[in-house]
C-alpha cells in the first residue's frame, strides 16, 4: 500500500487534531451550505408568491399586509409596505400618504416616493398586471421587469 506524501516526497502525518479540524471544517461547510440553500429556497418561495384581486379594486389605497395597491382611474400599481429606511411596516392610511410608525417617514401612496425622511428611497414596486383572460389583477412580489430593482 502506497503512503501519502507531499510534493517533497515526505510522508504526510495526519494528527488527530488535524483530523478533527478537517472534519469540523467539512461539517461547518456542509451546515452553511445547507443553510444557504434552505434560505435561498425560502426567499425565492416568498418572492414568487402571487396574489390575485378582482377587477373592482377601490380607487385609492387598498392595503394587503405585505403590499398595497393604489388605483387611479387609469391604472393600478402595487408597492411593498416595507419602509425603505429601516424595514418597518408602514401603517395603514385612508389618505394618499403612508406613514412609518417607527421613525416617522412618509410616502406618497400613488408613486411610492418618500415625502418626509428619514427614508430617502421610494417604496419597492411590485409587478402588478391585469389578466384579461380571468379579469383579475395579479400581483407578484417581485420588481416589475421594466423597473430598476
Amino acid at each position: 500500500m502506497r503512503r501519502l506524501t507531499n510534493f517533497m516526497d515526505k510522508p504526510i502525518v495526519l494528527s488527530r487534531k488535524s483530523f478533527v479540524k478537517i472534519i469540523a471544517g467539512i461539517c461547518t461547510g456542509s451546515f452553511l451550505w445547507s443553510w444557504y440553500n434552505l434560505s435561498k429556497d425560502q426567499v425565492q418561495k416568498e418572492n414568487q408568491s402571487e396574489f390575485r384581486h378582482s377587477e373592482d379594486i377601490s380607487l385609492g389605497i387598498s392595503y394587503f399586509g405585505k403590499y398595497f395597491l393604489y388605483r387611479t382611474k387609469d391604472s393600478v400599481v402595487a408597492f411593498s409596505t416595507i419602509c425603505t429606511h429601516a424595514g418597518c411596516r408602514i401603517g395603514k392610511s385612508n389618505s394618499g400618504i403612508l406613514q412609518c410608525e417607527c421613525h416617522g417617514s412618509r410616502f406618497d401612496a400613488a408613486t411610492g416616493r418618500p415625502l418626509k425622511g428619514p427614508a430617502i428611497h421610494p417604496l419597492r414596486q411590485f409587478d402588478c398586471r391585469f389578466d384579461s383572460r380571468t379579469g383579475e389583477w395579479i400581483v407578484k412580489l417581485q420588481t416589475p421587469k421594466d423597473q430598476p430593482a
Binding site: 416595507i82 429601516a86 424595514g87 418597518c88 411596516r89 410608525e101 417607527c102
Partner: peptide, 9 residues
C-alpha cells in the same frame, strides 16, 4: 417592528 428593523439591518 423590532424584528423587521433587525432583519433589515
Amino acid at each position: 417592528q423590532a424584528e423587521r428593523i433587525f432583519a433589515s439591518l
